[in-house]
């Protein structure tokens, strides 16, 4: 049996060096709520686990000029308790709060949810809608990547060997901007999203939508940024006709699978429904 090593570096550089220097498979441990399940099920067999929770940048939240930098390994419960952050980006925080139980919330993180690269990750469509950007560190320094470019397929990311997400940046929010995330699950808690929809939109003073981003989760191999859905809203007051167009555009963007969590037909229809419902919430938030 190969010995599994555990390291808890205290700096970004140290972590990058450890990950890059591993001879076999190395895994980043943030909240561990996916990693430990995969370890237990023998889905992965790394030789090194790098616990990044002792690196200050990865567990703290800061704000500068309205731009939030959220540590990739900060526990969701801490984000939810951050009243200013919650007030600024309720859709993102609520999306992350939907991941698992209270117990999971004590550990699960935005960075983990993103890098686990499940097409059904709740926080990802919300982050994409919010135009979030990742700061990624690696052996060759740092780079910034939009959230939608991180996952490339189920369990697959664009991160190179030795790279890991340090922070997630949420941009300065324009006036009259609101975000929202809704998902469908069979129960009321504890399920993986069958469909997830993140919406962020901005209104002008007359209530006309000037900018929008709509992202769908669990309806394709990775979360989608659906331009046609956003275009259905932009230039409108998000009236019934715009909502109908949004619904149709969201449905048209879906290419889901049949599985134990839902059928193609179900996922497609409900994507349209949730796009409308999430937009209604975002609209309410943009107006208030």
């Amino acid at each position: 049996m190969s010995a599994l090593q555990y390291k808890a570096p205290t700096s970004v550089d140290e972590a990058a060096a450890l990950l890059a220097g591993a001879s076999g498979e190395a895994r980043v441990l943030a909240g561990g709520t996916d990693l430990l399940v995969q370890l237990r099920a023998a889905m992965i067999a790394p030789e090194l686990i790098v616990d990044v929770k002792h690196i200050p940048e990865l567990t703290s939240v800061s704000v500068e000029d309205g731009v939030y930098s959220i540590g990739a390994a900060a526990a969701s419960a801490e984000l939810h308790e951050n009243a200013d952050l919650f007030a600024m980006w309720p859709g993102v925080i609520e999306a992350m709060d939907l991941v698992g139980s209270t117990q999971i919330q004590g550990r699960a993180s935005l960075g983990g949810n993103l890098c686990n690269a499940s097409p059904a990750a709740d926080s990802v469509p919300a982050m994409i809608a919010a135009s979030a950007v990742c700061v990624i560190a690696g052996p060759n320094g740092t780079r910034e990547v939009p959230v939608e470019d991180v996952a490339t397929g189920p369990g697959q990311t664009s991160l190179a060997k030795g790279e890991f997400v340090v922070t997630i940046r949420l941009p300065k929010k324009a006036p009259r901007t609101g975000d929202a995330y809704l998902r469908f699950i069979p129960r009321t808690e504890m399920d993986i999203a069958v469909v997830g929809v993140g919406v962020c939109l901005t209104l002008d003073e007359g209530g006309v939508c000037t900018a929008a981003r709509v992202s769908l989760g669990a309806v394709a191999a990775r979360a989608l940024l659906v331009k046609d859905a956003a275009d259905a809203l932009i230039g409108t007051k998000c009236d019934d006709a715009a909502m109908a167009n949004l619904d149709a555009a969201a449905q048209a963007a879906c290419s889901p699978i049949n599985d134990k969590r839902g059928t193609i037909e179900f996922r497609t229809k409900v994507a349209g429904v949730l796009a409308r419902r999430a937009t209604a919430i975002a609209l309410e938030r943009a107006r208030s």
Partner: peptide, 8 residues
Amino acid sequence: FLDYRIPV
């Protein structure tokens, strides 16, 4: 228990 969904 994730996908065998007993009531919570």
